[in-house]
Deep mutational scan, measured.
Amino acid sequence: DEIHIHFNGVTIEFRGLTEEAKKALEEAIKRGASEEELKELARRLIK
């Protein structure tokens, strides 16, 4: 299970995320999180 985020022309790929983690990332994107914020969020979620 993986998710691809297209962000300002950059694709960020995450693997092994739970549904909750995906929802958290989607919410962050909707509120306009920066690419760095998304990566940091993903790091926290994957652990």
Rank of each mutant, 00 (worst) to 15 (best):
I12M: 01
L25R: 00
A33K: 03
K22S: 05
H4A: 02
A21T: 11
S34W: 07
E27P: 01
N8T: 02
I29Q: 02
N8F: 04
R44F: 07
K47L: 13
G9R: 00
A21F: 08
D1I: 12
I3D: 09
G9K: 01
V10C: 14
G9A: 00
E2L: 10
I46P: 05
I29D: 01
E37M: 12
H4P: 00
E26L: 15
R44C: 11
G9E: 04
L25N: 00
V10E: 09
L17H: 01
T11M: 04
L45V: 07
R43L: 14
D1Y: 14
E27C: 11
A33D: 09
I29R: 01
E36S: 07
E20V: 08
E20K: 07
L45R: 00
G32E: 06
R31E: 08
G9D: 08
T11G: 01
F7D: 02
E2P: 14
E27A: 11
I29K: 02
A24T: 12
G9I: 01
N8H: 06
L25H: 00
E26C: 15
K23T: 10
G32Q: 04
E37C: 06
E20D: 11
L38K: 00
E36A: 11
N8V: 02
E20R: 05
E36P: 07
K47E: 15
E36Q: 11
E13L: 03
E36R: 08
K23M: 10
I3K: 03
K22Y: 09
A33Y: 08
R43Q: 10
G32I: 04
E19Y: 04
K39C: 15
K39E: 09
L45C: 07
I46E: 07
G32T: 02
F7P: 01
A28P: 00
V10D: 05
T11R: 05
I29N: 02
S34L: 08
L45M: 13
T11C: 12
E27L: 11
G9M: 00
K22M: 09
E40P: 00
R31C: 07
E13D: 14
L38H: 00
A24L: 14
L45K: 01
R43G: 13
G9P: 02
T18W: 05
E40F: 04
I29P: 00
K22F: 12
L17Q: 02
E13C: 11
H6S: 06
A21C: 08
K22H: 07
E27M: 10
E13G: 01
A33E: 04
N8C: 15
S34G: 11
T11D: 08
S34E: 06
K22I: 13
E26D: 11
H6M: 03
G32K: 05
I46W: 01
K30Y: 11
R44M: 12
R44P: 01
I5T: 01
V10M: 10
G9N: 03
K30W: 10
E35I: 15
E19Q: 07
A42S: 03
H4T: 12
G9L: 00
K47G: 14
R31G: 11
K39N: 07
E13N: 03
N8G: 11
L38P: 00
I12F: 00
R43V: 13
E35R: 02
K39Y: 15
K47C: 09
R15M: 13
K23E: 09
E36M: 08
R15H: 15
I3W: 15
E36K: 07
E35G: 11
R44E: 14
E36L: 07
D1R: 12
E40Q: 06
H6T: 02
R31L: 11
A42Y: 11
K23I: 11
H6E: 08
G16K: 07
K47M: 09
L25T: 00
F14S: 06
E13A: 03
R15F: 15
A24E: 14
T11Q: 03
V10G: 06
K23C: 08
E20T: 09
F14Y: 05
A28W: 13
A28I: 13
E19G: 11
H6P: 00
K39M: 15
K22N: 03
E19A: 10
I46S: 10
E37N: 04
I46C: 13
H6K: 03
S34R: 05
N8P: 08
I46H: 06
E40M: 05
L41C: 04
S34M: 09
A21Y: 04
E13W: 14
A33R: 03
G16T: 05
S34P: 05
R31S: 12
E20C: 07
E20N: 07
R43I: 14
R31A: 12
A33G: 06
A28L: 13
L38A: 01
D1A: 13
F7V: 15
T11A: 02
A24K: 10
E13Y: 15
K30V: 12
E26G: 07
E2F: 15
E13T: 08
E36H: 12
G9H: 01
K23Y: 12
A24G: 07
I3S: 07
K39L: 15
G9C: 05
I5R: 00
K23F: 11
I5A: 01
E35L: 15
G16M: 04
